[in-house]
Design a protein around this nucleic acid. Structure first.
Length: 762
DNA sequence: CTAAGCTGTCATGAT
DNA sequence: ACATCATGACAGCTT
């Protein structure tokens, strides 16, 4: 019993560590990158440690089957201890989205993560498979870290296509088997694989033991997890119970004391694991061609789906706030809930996408390729030979807990495609299409700009600066307008956008101060004239029409002018007729000056002169009503003069109004143009961020997957034998604890969860 | 000579 | 009721 307890404790501890890692965000990278070959190997997969079978074999090799836990892996003690410390740091494991979000925020260096990701779940066992799988990823990832955004994109999308193309039947099968939803399908595949590799020690066909287990589960089915152990046959039941106890103990104390032995075991395992990437270069070379072209779209698609899934998960969490028992927990468990939602959930999406890719179908498929290919494909290829049972078991377990969705890339969940695939398109189709377009555009932008994920912030800044440039451009127009001298009421336009405020404000102030420059200029000229040359001009004017300004001789003309359009022609004709002859022909510079001034004068000014109006048009137009009335009252003016003055004032004001109106119009257009540009930048930025988030999410999923496998692989029953992934699965309870339950039960719960969400949605 | 743009003006409605 | 503003529509002028 003691030994059993130790084993259980070990397993629990490991699992706890895993969970903590998941929740806390362990630095897998550190382990991987750092000089800890063993762990790295374990995570990355080539090593036997990763897979249950492998681990088992390893144990046999090292210590033999019944080896005592303590003797096994003292080496790993430190590693385990480190993990444990991290775990302790975490209060409790919580799979919920919150955790996921945290990951997103604290994204680990891509290089390290990426290295683990692709391989994590799948590729562990077969060296060749591992090489294939890991090689590409590693190469890509590494390059990714330092490379630009485009490369990231490539990384995301690039890997998939090649892999898909290379996928063998086995791969496809694995993908299908992986699917969380279709458990039976998975099981069968798993069984087959196991039989081939492990000799099907514990694995029974789904129909066989699985059916029984299912039946038991049904009995237990229970809403209460407690009953569960009883359902499990013999040792399994005990195991489950013991696990529960262990969990409690862990939660209560989480001491290392007894567990010390077990950590050591972990360490040994880690060491045993081979280096992750043996043939990265080869992989890269193979993949590189594919990656370049279509990767980005694929990746984007995938990420988009991931994002969708995250959002859904969050929503689900909110909905399913109620806590649930560990065994029955599925409904309460956010993950499980999500899982149930599968079709709509990210997981489902992934699955469907994955399938599409596998099927070699349409664009969707191609889109997904990046993730799918990178992880799932590689994993599948490797897994088929090596870890059939593990992969399937993992899938099933994850599926039950929703974690599957998180952990497993679309490919892993591949089998789900069959079921979920069809459903996905409907809800997501439109969005996806849009998203795809956006993403594509984003990609274009990204490519054009060549920004890296790492450089996202920089890019944003650049964008800001760009916006500044745009502002400048906008400024130029505004400045032009200001130069034009209109006193545009830019206030309205400026108010439209804060960004524009700077430019608009500047223009505004100028405008406000100056008013229409043209007007001011004219005014200046006029005033100058008024001081010096007004009379001369006037006389000159009057010569033509002359005689008595006050008399009727001018009136006809004035009347003519007074009329709307007709007057324009008449006066101008008069002016032209009158002025040119005297001035141009015989007079010198003075004449020319006068002529120039005349030309500068507006029609109304000419008219005013013709009418001998005693004050400037500027005053007529710009004086306040009161002052204007006073001014008029000071002079005794004829009706014609008064009429002309009113018309001049009216036209002058209308002229300014028109100028303001046009300026406003122009500003509005410019602001709209700038707004469009800003929105486009924001859109591009958001898309980049989305890509980043999706990438980090994927990495986290991979981490979780690898951790799950690692923990599960270290679990031992009372006999010191590893648990069969096909028969057992780790399930996360709402309270943060982790349970080892029969796969049948897990599957059942998963199905239940699936139904609920669907119903709810409908 | 024509087209396009700019500007001034008018008519009209809103403030 | 009046003054002013805003704006569409026109027409003339300039390029």
């Amino acid at each position: 019993m003691l030994s059993l307890k130790k084993y259980l404790t070990e397993g629990l501890l490991q699992f706890t560590i895993l969970l903590s890692l998941i929740g806390v965000r362990v630095d897998v990278d550190t382990y991987l990158t750092s000089q800890l070959p063993p762990l790295r190997e374990i995570i990355l997969g080539p090593s036997s440690a990763y897979t249950q079978t492998q681990f088992h074999n390893l144990r046999n090799t090292l210590d033999g089957y019944g080896i005592h836990p303590k003797s096994i892996d003292l080496d790993n003690y430190f590693t385990a201890r480190r993990l444990l410390s991290q775990v302790r740091a975490l209060d409790r494991f919580q799979v919920p989205t919150t955790e996921v979000n945290a990951w997103l925020v604290h994204r680990d260096p891509e290089g390290s993560v990426s290295g683990s990701q692709p391989n994590s779940g799948l590729a562990l066992e077969s060296s060749s498979g591992l090489q294939d799988v890991t090689g590409p990823d590693n190469g890509v990832r590494e390059s990714e870290t330092e490379q630009g955004f485009g490369e990231d994109l490539e990384d995301l999308g690039a890997v998939a296509p090649p892999v898909s193309g290379d996928l063998t039947k086995e791969d496809i099968d694995l993908g299908a088997g992986r699917e969380v939803f279709d458990y039976s399908h998975r099981q069968k595949e798993q069984d087959v694989d196991k039989n081939l590799r492990d000799g099907g020690e514990q694995e029974d066909t789904w129909a066989g033991e699985g059916a029984e287990a299912l039946a038991r589960n049904l009995l237990v089915d229970g809403e209460t997890g407690e009953s569960f152990p009883a359902q499990v046959p013999g040792g399994e039941d005990q195991t489950a119970l013991s696990l529960e106890e262990c969990l409690r103990l862990l939660e209560a104390t989480c001491p290392f004391g007894e567990n010390a032995e077990f950590p050591a075991e972990v360490a040994s395992i880690t060491e045993a694991v081979p280096s992750e990437s043996e043939s990265p270069a080869l992989q890269n070379s193979l993949l590189s061609p594919l990656l370049t072209g279509t990767e980005s779209p694929f990746d984007l698609e995938q990420q988009w789906q991931d994002l969708m899934s995250i959002m859904e998960m969050q929503a689900m969490e909110v909905n399913t706030s109620t806590s649930e028992v560990l065994y029955n927990a599925p409904p309460g468990d956010p993950l499980s809930t999500n899982y149930s939602l599968a079709p709509n959930t990210p997981i489902n999406q992934n699955v469907s996408l994955h399938q599409a890719s596998l099927g070699g179908c349409s664009q969707d498929f191609s889109l997904f390729s990046p993730e799918v290919e990178s992880l799932p494909v590689a994993g599948s290829s490797t897994l088929l030979p090596l870890v059939p049972s593990n992969s399937t078991s993992l899938n099933s377990t994850f599926g039950s807990t929703n974690l599957a969705g998180l952990f497993f890339p679309p490919q892993l969940n591949g089998t789900a495609n069959d079921t979920a695939g069809p459903e996905l398109p409907d809800p997501l189709g439109g969005l996806l299409d849009e998203a795809m377009l956006d993403e594509i555009s984003l990609m274009d932008l990204a490519i054009e700009e060549g920004f890296n994920p790492v450089q996202a912030s920089q890019l944003e800044e650049e964008f800001d600066s760009d916006s500044g440039l745009s502002l400048d451009s906008s400024h130029s127009p505004s400045s032009l307008s200001s130069s034009e001298g209109s006193s545009s009421s830019s206030s309205s336009s400026s108010s439209s956008s804060a960004s524009s405020s700077a430019s608009s404000s500047s223009s505004f102030s100028e405008e406000g101060a100056v008013g229409y420059s043209s007007d001011s200029e004219t005014l200046d000229l006029e005033e100058a004239e008024g001081a010096v040359g007004y009379q001369p001009e006037y006389s000159k004017f009057c010569r033509m029409s002359y005689q008595d300004p006050s008399q009727l001789s001018c009136l006809p003309y004035l009347e003519h002018v007074g009329h709307n359009h007709t007057y324009n022609m008449a006066p101008s004709a008069l002016d032209s007729a009158d002025l040119p002859p005297p001035t141009t022909l015989k007079k010198g510079s003075k004449e020319k000056q006068a002529d120039f001034l005349d030309k500068q004068m507006s029609r109304d000014e000419h008219r005013a002169r013709a009418m001998k109006i005693p004050f400037t048009n500027d005053k007529i137009i710009n004086l306040p009503v009161e002052e204007f009335n006073e001014l008029l009252s000071k002079y005794q003016l004829s009706e014609a003069q008064l009429s002309l003055i009113r018309d001049i004032r009216r036209r002058g004001k209308n002229k300014m109004a028109a100028q303001n109106c046009r300026k406003r119009k122009l500003d509005t257009i410019l602001n709209l143009e700038r707004d469009v540009e800003d929105l486009q930048r924001d859109k591009a930025r958001l898309l980049r961020e989305k890509v980043e988030f999706l990438r980090s999410l994927r990495q986290m999923k991979q981490k979780v997957q690898s951790l799950y496998q690692e923990v599960f692989g270290r679990l031992r029953d009372e006999n010191g034998r590893p648990y069969s992934p096909s028969q057992y699965a780790l399930q996360y309870a709402g309270d943060g604890s982790v349970l080892l339950i029969p796969r049948t039960m897990a599957d059942q719960q998963a199905r239940r969860q699936e139904r609920k969400p669907k119903d709810r949605r409908k």
